[in-house]
Amino acid sequence: MNRAIYIETIKKILKQRFVVFMLLAMGVLLPLSLILAPTPTVTSVDGWDAFAVSTIIGLITVTATNAIGNSLSIGGRSDYMPLIFTRPLHRYQYVISKWLALATVIAVVSVLQNLLFTTSGAFTRWGLTDEMIVLDFFERIISALSVSSVLTMIYLLPTQTMVLSGVIAFELAAGISILAMSIAVPMPETATDVSVLLCDILGIDDWIRTTFIPALFGGSALSSIQQYIAAIINLSNFLAPQIHLYDILETRPFVWSALLEPISNILIALTIATAVLNAREYHYDVD
């Protein structure tokens, strides 16, 4: 990792007012709204909290600041990358620094949410055990690392590929209900199995599903869209697999593959990002 690039990338993210506002909203206001809500409307779905939160934060951060590649990702010429790549650093160091910087921001906000849930007693109220709470912190960090690696890879791809990947990223976000303005919060159903419930924050999710989509596309559209979203959720799980630490630790016999999956995906994403950087040429100007 290159310390200078890591620090400057974090600074760059934090210099964007819109991003800081969104990060604060995600890190503080959203958890507070859930904590203070007397009886939140809750629907049970298969989703994932840390992954969803991390992805949303990651997408907001990257798309708003273009923190990973900046002009690198939007064209070959007239950018500042040649100045960086004539410095004594390996290109993988650049990738690692950008990835860790993004993961740091996402993890901090994500962990901040958990801290608020924990200190306010919300987690305990929702029935999470101490072990679950502690593991959830780790899950959020792993999710941040995982999501950041995918986003880093996407934003270092050449322009044409990035457009396609951007669509995938968008779908990834859609797949976790970002369009419905919802956030997933973990809720235990039994002592050995953590299921996840989706809390509808402003009733928008419910309104879109029951009123907006049927009105726009007809009654049958809803099930089609739900199938489509389910496919996208599978795709996003493939890109950045979810990890359920509590389940992994409770399952007997112990399943190593569940731990290896996110690690291998992070490695694959970062390897592709580095390979792309190594293969690319950097035209700094016209001749």
Binding site: K12, Y80, L83
Partner: peptide, 13 residues
């Protein structure tokens, strides 16, 4: 090495 491109582009922030 040191390098100055014809039209240097800098990180604007």
């Amino acid at each position: 090495i040191g390098f100055l491109p014809e039209r240097p582009h800098f990180e604007s922030w």
